[in-house]
Amino acid sequence: MESLGDLLKAMPGGRDMRQHADKLMAELLADPLVGKLRTKYPELDDATIRLNLNRIYQCTKEFRNCSNCTGLDQCPNDFEGHYTELSCETTGGLVQLNDRKVSCKKLIARQSEDRIRSRIRSFYIDDRALSQGYSADEIVSKDVERMKAVGQVISYINRTKEDGLRPEGLYLTGSFGTGKTFLMCYMLHELAKAGFTGAIVYMPDFVEDMKTLMLEQGKVKETVDLMKETDLLIFDDIGAENLNPWVRDHVLGAILNYRMNRKPTFYTSNYGLDDIEQHFSFTNKDGDDQHKGQRLMDRIRHYVQQVHVTGHNKRGR
């Protein structure tokens, strides 16, 4: 943005420069923003305005930029997302004009969203699922068939905001593409705004990654500790992973054993609770081991409210 100083320096001679300054002075005195400033600070006289032409010009220029804002990325002000605010004070009979940079509403909103996003970790989940805007009205109206499930999720969100964390989470089950992951991302986003931390983990990729890290216990411990301690933990698409005994018993089992009676864990799956128990009971290495499956399910079944998500497949739409 061109400053008043630059404009004056561009003038060829002293007389022209003075005439141009007088012209700008007249324009500023006629500017509605300067009129409001003088109404607020009656002591702001013409002499003080002339002494502070650059500050006042900067303020009016930035005000017009903000009034025609097309977004932070195109902000033409000297400091992106900020505008100049003026104030007056009288000290020893001398009127002084002060300026300060103020964050605009768009910058404040972006910073707020960044703080919310910083509370959420995603593992193998497309970040776009977490960064997009969410509208409760849109979620309710997008598919009336899943309205009951949406109501249960929103009720859970509201109770958590009012009463804080409880050990009970949610187990969302339903057909492919009915929006289970979307609903859990919505829950994470809403509760992050209330100050809670969260993580969402795509189970098939997570399990395969853990298998490759079996000999790197430091990395495994770091990941497991994060999932133990986060306020809200979501295992997405559980049942689609190819388990081995070590991941089941020493990774997943350790996380759930720590979280039960402490913090809520959430799940999305195409399988119901009984079917997922059968899934946990079988591994390619050990075959069928119902005891191990039941042991893991004891850390899930008693700590979730089951939510059936019905509706049509939204993928590819």
Results as ranks from 00 to 15, higher is better:
residue 130 L to C: 00
residue 136 A to E: 03
residue 111 Q to R: 09
residue 111 Q to P: 14
residue 143 D to S: 00
residue 125 I to D: 01
residue 137 D to W: 09
residue 105 K to C: 07
residue 104 C to L: 06
residue 118 S to N: 15
residue 128 R to L: 11
residue 103 S to F: 07
residue 133 G to N: 15
residue 142 K to I: 08
residue 129 A to T: 08
residue 133 G to R: 10
residue 121 R to F: 02
residue 116 I to C: 10
residue 108 I to Q: 14
residue 116 I to P: 00
residue 138 E to R: 08
residue 112 S to I: 15
residue 134 Y to P: 04
residue 128 R to S: 12
residue 99 D to G: 13
residue 115 R to E: 14
residue 136 A to H: 04
residue 120 I to T: 00
residue 103 S to V: 13
residue 130 L to Q: 04
residue 110 R to H: 14
residue 142 K to Y: 05
residue 136 A to C: 03
residue 118 S to T: 01
residue 109 A to C: 11
residue 143 D to K: 01
residue 128 R to M: 10
residue 132 Q to L: 05
residue 131 S to L: 10
residue 146 R to T: 03
residue 114 D to Q: 09
residue 101 K to T: 10
residue 136 A to I: 14
residue 101 K to S: 12
residue 104 C to F: 12
residue 128 R to E: 08
residue 117 R to A: 05
residue 107 L to I: 09
residue 128 R to D: 14
residue 137 D to S: 07
residue 104 C to A: 04
residue 130 L to M: 06
residue 131 S to A: 14
residue 102 V to D: 07
residue 129 A to R: 14
residue 123 F to K: 08
residue 133 G to W: 06
residue 123 F to S: 04
residue 100 R to H: 13
residue 139 I to V: 06
residue 102 V to G: 02
residue 125 I to W: 00
residue 122 S to T: 08
residue 104 C to M: 08
residue 133 G to S: 12
residue 134 Y to K: 00
residue 110 R to P: 13
residue 146 R to W: 03
residue 117 R to M: 05
residue 114 D to H: 07
residue 137 D to M: 05
residue 119 R to E: 00
residue 124 Y to F: 15
residue 121 R to A: 03
residue 147 M to K: 15
residue 99 D to N: 10
residue 131 S to E: 13
residue 125 I to N: 02
residue 120 I to W: 02
residue 133 G to E: 13
residue 121 R to G: 03
residue 117 R to C: 02
residue 99 D to C: 08
residue 142 K to L: 06
residue 99 D to R: 12
residue 108 I to V: 11
residue 113 E to G: 13
residue 111 Q to T: 07
residue 119 R to A: 02
residue 102 V to S: 03
residue 103 S to H: 09
residue 144 V to G: 00
residue 140 V to G: 03
residue 127 D to F: 06
residue 100 R to P: 06
residue 99 D to Q: 12
residue 115 R to W: 05
residue 119 R to M: 03
residue 102 V to N: 06
residue 130 L to G: 01
residue 109 A to I: 06
residue 107 L to Q: 07
residue 138 E to I: 09
residue 139 I to M: 13
residue 123 F to Q: 04
residue 144 V to P: 01
residue 126 D to G: 07
residue 121 R to H: 07
residue 144 V to K: 06
residue 146 R to M: 01
residue 133 G to F: 08
residue 124 Y to N: 10
residue 103 S to A: 10
residue 110 R to F: 14
residue 124 Y to L: 05
residue 147 M to D: 11
residue 118 S to Y: 00
residue 144 V to H: 06
residue 100 R to F: 12
residue 147 M to E: 11
residue 103 S to W: 04
residue 112 S to G: 15
residue 132 Q to F: 05
residue 108 I to W: 05
residue 131 S to C: 11
residue 126 D to E: 09
residue 141 S to N: 07
residue 126 D to Y: 07
residue 130 L to I: 05
residue 120 I to Q: 01
residue 106 K to W: 13
residue 142 K to R: 13
residue 103 S to E: 14
residue 121 R to C: 02
residue 107 L to D: 09
residue 147 M to V: 10
residue 101 K to F: 15
residue 140 V to I: 13
residue 125 I to M: 01
residue 118 S to W: 02
residue 105 K to E: 14
residue 148 K to V: 12
